[in-house]
């Protein structure tokens, strides 16, 4: 899977979780950039991404996700 494909999948998850079909995330996107991205939405997001890509993040990976870019890198590594 390429990084672009991962971002395509991530955008679908984000749009679904935040109920906003126009939402587009980028490498540097963080919780501060998206309205409603609080600690609970973050967890919903993590679990939804896991389901979408068929992976399971470790707690270390969850805590090290500083922005969408690091999330994509972890996914890329897991799916390789």
């Amino acid at each position: 899977m390429t990084r672009d494909e991962i971002f395509k999948g991530l955008n679908e998850v984000f749009q679904d979780v935040f109920d906003d079909s126009t939402l587009e995330v980028e490498e540097e996107t963080t919780a501060n950039d998206v309205d409603g991205w609080d600690s609970f939405a973050h967890i919903t997001l993590i679990v939804s991404v896991e389901k979408k890509f068929g992976v399971k993040f470790s707690m270390g990976q969850v805590s090290s996700m500083k922005n969408v870019g690091t999330m994509a890198s972890i996914l890329l590594e897991k799916l390789a």
Binding site: S39, I43, T44, V47, K56, M59, V62, S63
Partner: peptide, 23 residues
């Protein structure tokens, strides 16, 4: 508390299909 308690516990709950309870 969010990093070491809230997030791991809630993720564990949702993975076990107990979203509402853990929420």
């Amino acid at each position: 508390l969010t990093t070491y308690l809230y997030t791991p516990l809630t993720i564990m709950g949702i993975r076990k299909n107990k979203r509402k309870l853990f929420t």
